[in-house]
Nucleic acid binder design. Structure first.
Length: 338
DNA sequence: GTTGAGCGTT
């Protein structure tokens, strides 16, 4: 083949080159002609297939979120990544970021129209793992979709009452006012306003629960509710996942819910083998059943014990859920979590 | 002491 010229101006490794057909390619100058100090370097002695291989080697490692497993996306011959290539794998993504290991800060990737450019003006994407940027609305939607849409649907179609979240409450609205407002639809079994634990002030949302499924359906069919002069939204709250163990985590316990209360309450679902309440008080407990199916059937549900809405979920601690999700812990290992 | 999309203080 004919000699190929490589432009060495302000290069730090990878620069563009053209083969004899005028096709641009990436060539690693440091590896190919390290000793040359000319402005351009002849690399005609290099086998063309090898150059093509080098040229085709630039894949960009992209993950949906930081920490996710990356997918390798092919860069274009000029080193850029087409937005369409990115979006083919990550629908809705509009850009890329990566973690700068020196500064620990997240860096944005330059983009122009339909192309994304490698960082630092280089022509290589290097070994960085890049993660997607989504427009704000889509990111929110994604959480909604992936985290809980299926679970939500299951919960609402189950025919049972669940806690409903009320968003957009006035800072002034009290639990009594909330209860009073919704009582006109049917019997309310629980009303709760979430407050800032320091100031005690409302955080502007709360939860409500009805005695009958019919009432719940009726209330949910009207999404806008005028409460204390503000239009509020009532929705099925986001839920958590499932469980395979015979032990469940009971969250949002209050200090007056005793071991006996828990045993008495949960015994109606199946034989309880153990109750564990951490001391000092930590607002959760564990209930173990003889039958794992009973435990499983309760997961994701809210139950009212002594007027308090507690939440039943899987008994796997938060810091292990990542590994659990990745399947890197065996069920045997998981059983030794506590 | 402020606020106005969200997801249940330990």
């Amino acid at each position: 083949m004919d000699p190929v010229e490589v432009d060495k101006k302000d290069n730090v490794g990878m620069k563009f080159a053209e083969d004899e057909n005028g096709k641009s390619m990436d060539v690693d100058i440091v590896n190919l002609a390290a000793e040359s100090s000319d402005e351009s370097v002849e690399i005609g002695h290099i086998d063309r297939r090898k150059i093509i291989t080098i040229a085709n080697e630039d894949f960009v490692q992209v993950a949906e979120q930081e920490g996710d497993n990356p997918i390798e996306l092919p860069a274009e011959e000029d080193g850029t990544l087409l937005l369409s290539t990115l979006q083919a794998q990550f629908s809705g993504s509009c850009g890329l970021q990566y973690r700068n290991m020196d500064t620990k800060a997240v860096r944005g990737i330059r983009s122009n129209q339909d192309r994304l450019f490698p960082p630092n003006g280089a022509s290589s994407w290097g070994e960085n793992v890049y993660f997607c940027v989504f427009p704000k609305e889509i990111k929110r939607k994604r959480d909604d979709d992936l985290v809980s849409t299926a679970v939500k649907a299951k919960r609402i179609e189950s025919g049972r009452c669940i806690d409903l979240i009320v968003l957009g409450l006035s800072w002034e609205t009290t639990e009594n006012r909330l209860r009073k407002y919704f009582q006109k639809y049917g019997e309310v079994t629980m009303a709760n306003i979430k407050t800032d634990y320091r100031s005690g002030h409302s955080r502007g949302f709360g939860f409500i629960r009805f005695a009958s499924y019919e009432t719940q359906k009726l209330v949910l069919s009207t999404s806008r509710h005028l409460i204390d002069g503000r239009w509020c939204e009532i929705k099925v709250p986001n839920a958590k996942g499932n469980n395979t163990s015979n032990k469940v985590f009971v969250g949002r316990c209050t200090e007056n819910i005793s071991s006996n209360d828990l045993r008495e309450y949960f015994s109606k679902f199946g034989e309880v083998s153990d109750i564990y309440i951490p001391q000092p008080f930590r607002a959760f407990s564990f209930v173990t059943f003889f039958d794992a199916d009973v435990a499983q059937s309760l997961c994701g549900e809210d139950h009212i014990i002594k007027g308090v809405s507690v939440n039943v979920s899987n008994a796997i601690p938060k810091h292990d859920q990542y590994n659990q999700y990745r399947g890197s812990r065996s069920p045997v290992e998981q059983s030794f979590n506590y």
